[in-house]
Design a protein around this nucleic acid. Structure first.
Lengths: 269, 269
DNA sequence: AAATATATTGCATAATGTGAAAACCACTCT
DNA sequence: AGAGTGGTTTTCACATTATGCAATATATTT
């Protein structure tokens, strides 16, 4: 009988594996590389134990030692695992496959993001032939309030972890007025923005995240009308954010196509 | 002393954890939900063992039971883990940060390029203290066939848009025999070159793009083994292009460091 | 250099994972 | 119905294997 951190038991498992996974979890929660002793303290294990677990994780590629600092970090195997898990959700495959088409049709850079523990995370992107080279790698996390992608998640929120982010980002924004000087939104401002986005069917942003760029984003909805993923188009022409621009039409049609279809197609379809 | 599937040992780890991770790996390789007994067969373990491991994985959210079929599948915890890892492996940033080190260690000019719609595009550039000053701006696009960078992309191609470039450049080369007089390659020549590059692990060029300069280039691969970016070293000493030169070793090690890798480096791939 | 923090290895001890077999369950076929 | 089949879960006695402590080794700071 193994016990988890709350003292709740779960039967039939393997204690050492449970401990190892608790360690993995600790590495996720610290969002940065950590030293062996930090991890040991973090989850109340003797350093030698942690060391042995890390050796096995390292061997499997789940964990790697960062540079010469010796700190431990999640490794490429973890990425493989996660993307493999994501790929089981067929909307991810369908969206990934179709993303190049969307880019070609719209002539804009196209992004596919999901909502991860760290926020909106880019898992696929197709760059358009734009003069402006945005260096944005896979796994980039986008701001919640000042990116089109983030706002789309905000408006069609998978409820649970979002409120926390909302607060965290607001707090951060208030302390760093330099970042977003024109917009220190109150709760009501945000609610109003969310309303607008929902009725428009897409979120947009002009130059907030990266000056000179404009972006529009629409959600891929599941059967509960929550965002499973968000697709974003990025360009330079301010016209694309306009309500009935060609880009907006294409994007929303594209996302509707990938969303879980409601059973009765009332009116809008 | 734990053994992996090849019989290779790795010291200091934990055997049961190694076995558990082998199981996880089996779940990744099957790209679909699998039943307990399938998994047991797959990795040569008794069903009871697999069951116990799955119980622990399930408890951690890494694995879940699909619907009422009872089959096991990777779960939300795996996504969380992967996205968390992905967020730390923004290779463009990591490569940009490390590029000066590579320049210093090798004493050569180092380039970081990504595959844009216009071709291989230089996005970062660290010039060595070399007498030869190559004037090459950020955003320069490099030829596909006659630069080390281009050849590396060719060999580890993100498949879709590349064929078009290949044809375009060939056509262009045939019309302009002055540019590449010695090499009017057929499709087979190119395929042969690609094979060589892939087995060598890097692409090279001597004086093709700019007379008097030599260059070697290696890819940063993503989890699908496609080139996400290419790093190129440029110098004047013809020795650097030799298969096991110091520069080659450094460069390939550097790129491997930044690439994604399969979870467990087992034989078959 | 000494001192402190951190990582790694060795070792005896018993706690824990192990495989075989038995019980359990959900089906299908006579 | 009832016996048969393939798959999953539980039980159990045993020794393999993980464990924590203490001893090195390595790195970082004073």
């Amino acid at each position: 009988m193994a016990k988890d951190d709350n003292g709740n038991e779960h039967t039939g498992g393997i204690q050492s594996l449970d401990a190892a996974l608790r360690l993995l979890n600790a590495m996720i929660e610290r969002r940065a590389p950590a030293s062996l002793s930090e991890l040991a303290r973090e989850c109340g294990m003797p350093p030698s134990k942690v060391h042995r677990y890390l050796a096995s994780f390292h061997h499997a590629g789940l964990v790697e030692q960062a540079g010469r600092s010796g700190k431990y970090d999640l490794g490429p195997g973890a990425v493989t695992l996660g993307l493999s898990a994501l790929a089981r959700h067929d909307f991810v495959n369908r969206a990934s496959d179709a993303l190049p088409d969307l880019r070609d049709e719209s002539g804009l850079t196209a992004l596919l993001s999901v909502w991860g523990t760290q926020g909106a995370t880019v898992i696929r992107w197709e760059r358009a032939a734009s003069p402006m080279v945005t260096s944005m790698g896979l796994g980039t996390t986008l701001p919640l309030l000042n990116s089109a992608t983030g706002r789309a998640f905000l408006a069609w929120a998978p409820p649970a972890p979002l409120q926390a982010f909302r607060e965290a980002e607001l707090r951060h924004a208030r302390q760093n007025p330099a970042v977003a000087p024109d917009l220190l939104p109150t709760e009501e401002d945000i609610d109003k923005m969310v309303q607008t986005i929902r009725t428009q069917g897409y979120a947009s942003v002009e130059g907030k995240f990266i000056p000179g760029l404009v972006a529009i984003a629409a959600p891929i909805l599941d059967w509960q009308r929550e965002a499973q993923a968000v697709i974003t188009l990025i360009g330079t022409d301010p016209a694309v954010v306009q309500p009935r621009s060609e880009a907006v039409e294409r994007l929303t049609a594209f996302c509707k196509e990938l969303s879980f279809a409601p059973m009765i197609t009332g009116g809008a379809r």
